[in-house]
Design a protein around this nucleic acid. Structure first.
Length: 888
RNA sequence: GGGCAAUUAGCUCAGCUGGUUAGAGCGUCACAUUGACAUUGUGAAGGUCACUGGUUCGAAUCCAGUAUUGCCCACCA
C-alpha cells in the first residue's frame, strides 16, 4: 500500500533515471511514422545557477514535448548551454579578481584567460545539466549542444564568410556604444537608460547661446546647428563661419542648417560632438563634417582638452564649467534637468559613445533571395511574421516586433572581448582575408570576438547538423545541411518558447540568420512567456536575495510537479506573473490529493479482491451506475477540452480544467459516491486517464502512480499514447442527471441546516417520478452520510402541493413538507424576471436570424451557433413557463 | 515623444470569438472529521467587473474617451 502522503524527493530522481535509461526522451523511441515535433531549448548561460526564468521555460517546453510525444509525434527537445560571451567573461574575471588577481587580462593573457573561462564553463554546464534534470525535463541528452563547440564554430565561420561575400557584413567606422568599464562595444539593445538629475548649462558660443548637460565633450565643437526654418537665426547662412571664444581659447566655428533640430528645445541652436553622440554623428555624416575624439577609450579626456587632459570626465566637468564661468561665458544653469543616462545592461557602467572600426551586418541591402525575390534581411524578418509563416503567441507581440524591425539599424557584431567566437578575418599589412584558419605566415587574426547573439542566432539548425560533417572542411555549409539527417528531419523547429524579454535579442535574430543561412524559417510558432515576479510584483533580483525564489529549494520542499503547476496554471502567455510559496504549496496539496485519490482506488480494489493491474477494460454499459456513466462522459468532455487547450498552447486553461475535474468531480463526488459501492474497474479506468492527461504537467507523481495502477503489460506513462475521446461514452443525459442527483443531496443538506435538524433526527422528503426514487434509494446510504438523515421517505404518488418548499429540478421535484424552507414567492419572482429576459433573448435571436443581411454575411458557423442558442433558449423558456404554472 | 498592456473578492489571478445567478486558489469565519487525504470535507461572508458615454434584446467581454499602474521603443542637444 502507498504511504499516506506523497514524498516527491524520494522518488523524483529515480523516476528521471528510469525515463532517461529507457530512451524515452529520444525521438528514435517514438513512432517512426510520427510527424516530427521539435523544440530547441533556449540554452541557459553557462554562468552558474538555474533560476525561475529557466524553470518556467523548462516546465512549458516539457509540457509541449510530453504532450506531443504522447500524441504519437516524433518529439525532439534539444538541450544545450550558451557560452554567453560578455556575461561569462565578466563572471570569471570577477572571480579571479576576488581570488587576488589585479588585472586578469594582463596577467594571464588571451590563451590562459580563455582556458580559465573554459574550465569554469565546464563546471557550470554540469550544474545546469543536473538542474535541468531536476525539473523533469524530457530532453534528448544524447543531442546536447553548446554554443561554443567546434561544429557551431564552423557554422559561425561559414555564415560570416558567406555574408561577407554577399556584402552583408562590412567593416566600418561607426559610432558605437562603448563601455569604458568593460572595454568593449555593446549593441544598441544592450544599452539601458536611467533617469538622472543633472545640471543643464547654457553657454555663450560666439553670437549663439548653446545648452548642454555635458560640457566636457565640448572642447572640439566647431559647428553650430540650427533648423533651416528658424526665423531667429535666418540671418546666418549655412556654411558661414565665425570666431568664438571657447574653453581653451578662440575657435573658428561653422554654421550648419539641419532639419533634425528641434527649434523649440533650449535655444534652438546646438553645437555638435560627432565622436561622442549618435545624433551628432548622423548630422556630421550627412554634411561631411570633421569628427574629433575628445574622450579616450579609458574614459579620460584626451590632449585636445588642454589643461584637463587625462582627467576623468566626472571630475573635469565642474572645473570646465568653472573655467567657462570665469570667462563670462556661462549664461545660466538649470539645476533640475532630468536626463537619461546610457548604461550598459551587462556591467552597469556608463556608456560613452565612440567612433570605432567595427564589424556590422547590413540589414537594409536588398539582395537576399527569399521566395523568389531579392529582399533585405529586414524585409525577410518582417515578411515571415507578416505572412504567417511564423506565429507569435500572444499575438500582440507582432506589433512590438514590427516596430522594432522598422527601427532596426545595422547590427554591430564585433566585441572587444576574448571569450567567444573570434572574428574569422585575417590581416597582413593592408591585405585582409576571411576564413577560420590562418592563410599563412605573418597573418594576424582580428582581435575581436563576435556578439554572443551571432552564434545563438544559428541555434535552431546548428544544433541539428551532424558534427562529423561539420568537421569536414571539404564540405560547404549547404552540403553539411544536406547530409545531416537530423536537420532534414527536424528543421524548421515547431515552437520556440522563451521570455518576451529576448524577443529582439534572440528570436528576431534567429529569424534573420536562419532564413539567410538555410533558406528556412527557424520555427513555426513563437511562444513567449512572461517574467516571474515577487508577490508584490517586483522583479526578483540578485542584489536583493530575499526576493529570490530558488527553484531548487522549491523542488526540495514541494516537489518539481508542484513547482511546475504553480508556474503554469493561472498564467497567460506574455504576461508577467507572481510566484510565492503559498501558491506552490497549494499545488503540492493538489499533487497529494491525487496521490490519496489513487490510494483510495487501490484500497477499494484491495477490499474487492481485485488486482488493478488485471483490469483492462470497462464493464458492460448495463453494469454502469448513473454516477459511472456521468463520470465517464465527463471524462470525455474534459479530454477533448484538455487536448484542444494543449494543441493551441492554452496550457493554463487545460491545466485548470484538469485541476477541477480531479478535485471537484472525481474526488469530491465520484469517490464519495463510490464509498461502500465502488465499481473498481471504472475507478481504475478513470484514474488511469487522469494520470495520462496530467502527465505533461506533473510527470513525476503521475509516473509513480501509473506504476501502481497501470495494466500489467503497459509500459511507462511517458511513452503511453494520449487518451482518445470515446464518443460512445459521451452521455450528456447521465451527466445532467448526475448533477441533479447532486442537487438533491445538497438540497436535503440545506433543508437540514436551515431547519436546524440535528444529525440523527428524522426528516421526510417526498419525491415523485419513479426513476428518481430508485436512484435516490440506491444512493440512500450516501445521502444519509452527507446529510446525517436517519430516514428518507419516498412517495411516488405525491403531488406537488402549494405549501411545499421545493427545489426546482427540471425532471424531478423534491418536495419537502416543511414550510418556509424555500421561499416560493421569491422563486416565482426570479423566475418571472428570468422569463422576461429569456423572451427578449429569444426574440433578439429571432430578429437576428430574420435579418437578411446578417444571414447573408455571417459565416455558416455563426448562424448554426445562433440557431443552437435559439433552441436552448426556447427550451429553457418552456421549462420556466411550466415551472411557473406548477407553483403559481 | 511613440507604442503595448493591465485595472474583476482582503491577496494572487481565470473568464476563448458578447448570453442564465461573474469563477478559482489562498486568506477569513462557522461547522464537520476513528472514514484515501488536517496537505481534509461542507458551507458562509466577501465583487457597481477602474470611471464616463456608445453599439446591442443583452456588455466584465465590442467601440470611444478619462484616470491610475506597469512594460517596451526612441531620446533632445
Amino acid at each position: 500500500m502507498l504511504p499516506k502522503a506523497y514524498d516527491p524527493s524520494s522518488v523524483e530522481d529515480s523516476i528521471y533515471t528510469k525515463w532517461e535509461e529507457s530512451g524515452a526522451f529520444r525521438p528514435e523511441s517514438c513512432d517512426p511514422k510520427g510527424e516530427p515535433f521539435t523544440i530547441s531549448m533556449p540554452p541557459p548561460n553557462a554562468t552558474g545557477q538555474l533560476h525561475l526564468g529557466h524553470a518556467v521555460m523548462l516546465a512549458l517546453e516539457d509540457i509541449f514535448i510530453r504532450f506531443q510525444r504522447m500524441r504519437g509525434k516524433k518529439a525532439l527537445w534539444v538541450p544545450g548551454t550558451d557560452h554567453a560571451a560578455i556575461a561569462t567573461e565578466n563572471v570569471v574575471i570577477k572571480l579571479l579578481k576576488d581570488g587576488g588577481m589585479r588585472d586578469p587580462r594582463k596577467e594571464l593573457g588571451r590563451e590562459a584567460l580563455i582556458a580559465e573561462i573554459a574550465k569554469f564553463v565546464e563546471k557550470s554546464k554540469a550544474t545546469i545539466r543536473s538542474q535541468v534534470r531536476k525539473m523533469g525535463s524530457s530532453c534528448d541528452w544524447s543531442r546536447e549542444r553548446y554554443t561554443f563547440e567546434p561544429s557551431l564554430n564552423r557554422c559561425v565561420n561559414e555564415v560570416f564568410a558567406r555574408m561577407y561575400g554577399d556584402g552583408l557584413i562590412y567593416r566600418g567606422h561607426r559610432i558605437v556604444n562603448w563601455d569604458p568599464k568593460l572595454q568593449t562595444t555593446v549593441s544598441d539593445d544592450e544599452v539601458e537608460y536611467k533617469e538622472e538629475m543633472s545640471f543643464f548649462y547654457t553657454f555663450q558660443y560666439g553670437p549663439f547661446q548653446i545648452a548642454t548637460a555635458r560640457p566636457e565633450t565640448k572642447f572640439g565643437d566647431k559647428y553650430v546647428v540650427m533648423h533651416p526654418e528658424d526665423k531667429r537665426y535666418a540671418k546666418y547662412k549655412h556654411g558661414e563661419t565665425f570666431e568664438a571664444e571657447w574653453i581653451n581659447g578662440p575657435v573658428r566655428a561653422t554654421v550648419i542648417k539641419d532639419a533634425s533640430i528641434d527649434p523649440e528645445f533650449g535655444t534652438g541652436v546646438m553645437t555638435i560632438t560627432p565622436w561622442h553622440d549618435h545624433t551628432d554623428f548622423a548630422i556630421a555624416e550627412k554634411h561631411g563634417l570633421e569628427k574629433e575624439q575628445i574622450i579616450g577609450f579609458d574614459g579620460k579626456l584626451l590632449p585636445v582638452a588642454g589643461e584637463f587632459a587625462g582627467m576623468k570626465i566626472d571630475d573635469a566637468r565642474p572645473l570646465i564649467v568653472e573655467k567657462l564661468k570665469s570667462k563670462g561665458l556661462l549664461v545660466k544653469v538649470d539645476e533640475n534637468y532630468v536626463h537619461n543616462k546610457a548604461v550598459s545592461q551587462r556591467g552597469g557602467g556608463g556608456i560613452e559613445p565612440q567612433i570605432k572600426l567595427q564589424w556590422f551586418i547590413d540589414v537594409n541591402k536588398e539582395m537576399v533571395p527569399w521566395k523568389g525575390e531579392q529582399m533585405s534581411l529586414k524585409q525577410i524578418m518582417h515578411s515571415v511574421v507578416h505572412h504567417g509563416d511564423i506565429t507569435i503567441i500572444p499575438e500582440r507581440f507582432d506589433k512590438t516586433y514590427f516596430h522594432w524591425i522598422d527601427n532596426l539599424r545595422d547590427w554591430c557584431i564585433s566585441r572587444q572581448i576574448w571569450w567567444g567566437h573570434r572574428v574569422p578575418v585575417w590581416y597582413k599589412d593592408d591585405a585582409m582575408q576571411i576564413g577560420a584558419d590562418s592563410p599563412g605566415k605573418g597573418w594576424e587574426q582580428d582581435a575581436d570576438t563576435l556578439d554572443t547573439w551571432f552564434s545563438s542566432a544559428l541555434w535552431t539548425w546548428s544544433t541539428l547538423i551532424d558534427p562529423k560533417k561539420a568537421a569536414d572542411p571539404a564540405l560547404s555549409l549547404e552540403e553539411i545541411l544536406k547530409q545531416s539527417p537530423d536537420f532534414q528531419m527536424f528543421h524548421p523547429t515547431s515552437v520556440m518558447e522563451t521570455g518576451y524579454d529576448i524577443l529582439f535579442f534572440w528570436v528576431a535574430r534567429m529569424i534573420l540568420m536562419t532564413t539567410y543561412a538555410t533558406g528556412q524559417i527557424p520555427f513555426k510558432t513563437v511562444y513567449l512567456h512572461g517574467l516571474i515576479r515577487t508577490r508584490d510584483g517586483k522583479k526578483m533580483s540578485k542584489s536583493h536575495p530575499e526576493t529570490m525564489i530558488d527553484p531548487l529549494d522549491m523542488i526540495q520542499n514541494y516537489g518539481a510537479d508542484a513547482l511546475r503547476l504553480s508556474m503554469i496554471v493561472g498564467q497567460s502567455p506574455g504576461a508577467d506573473s507572481r510566484l510565492y510559496e503559498e501558491k506552490i504549496a497549494g499545488y503540492r496539496n493538489f499533487v497529494n490529493k491525487l496521490w490519496n485519490a489513487s490510494r483510495f482506488v487501490l484500497l477499494q480494489c484491495e477490499q474487492a479482491g481485485v488486482d488493478p493491474k488485471s483490469i483492462t477494460k470497462l464493464p458492460k454499459s448495463s453494469d454502469l451506475s448513473l454516477a459511472d456513466r456521468a463520470m465517464l462522459s465527463r471524462l470525455q468532455t474534459i479530454t477533448k477540452k484538455v487536448t484542444e487547450g494543449l494543441t493551441e498552447y492554452r496550457l493554463s486553461e487545460a491545466g485548470d480544467t484538469l485541476y477541477s475535474f480531479v478535485w471537484d468531480d472525481f474526488c469530491d463526488w465520484y469517490l464519495e459516491l463510490s464509498k461502500g459501492n465502488a465499481n473498481t474497474a471504472v475507478l481504475v479506468h478513470i484514474l488511469r486517464k487522469i494520470l495520462q492527461l496530467l502527465h505533461p504537467y506533473c510527470p513525476f507523481v503521475t509516473e509513480e502512480l501509473w506504476s501502481q495502477v497501470k495494466a500489467e503489460d503497459a509500459g511507462m506513462l511517458i511513452s503511453k499514447p494520449w487518451p482518445e475521446v470515446k464518443k460512445e461514452l459521451v452521455d450528456t443525459k447521465a451527466e445532467e442527471a448526475f448533477l441533479q442527483l447532486i442537487s438533491v443531496i445538497q438540497a436535503v443538506r440545506k433543508i437540514r441546516a436551515d431547519q436546524g435538524i440535528e444529525p440523527g433526527k428524522e426528516i421526510s422528503t417526498i419525491i415523485h417520478t419513479k426513476k428518481w426514487v430508485e436512484l435516490l434509494e440506491s444512493q440512500e446510504g450516501h445521502i444519509r452520510r452527507m446529510g446525517k438523515i436517519s430516514s428518507l421517505t419516498f412517495d411516488t404518488d405525491a403531488k406537488p402541493h402549494k405549501n411545499a418548499g421545493s427545489v426546482f429540478l427540471p425532471e424531478i421535484e423534491v418536495h419537502v413538507p416543511l414550510e418556509g424552507v424555500i421561499d416560493i414567492a421569491a422563486e416565482r419572482k426570479t423566475l418571472e424576471k428570468e422569463k422576461v429576459e429569456l423572451e427578449k433573448y429569444v426574440k433578439g435571436i429571432e430578429a437576428k436570424l430574420g435579418n437578411k443581411e446578417f444571414v447573408a454575411r455571417a459565416p455558416e458557423k455563426v448562424i448554426v451557433a445562433e440557431k443552437e442558442k435559439l433552441e436552448t433558449g426556447a427550451e429553457k423558456l418552456r421549462k420556466i413557463t411550466e415551472r411557473l404554472k406548477m407553483i403559481g
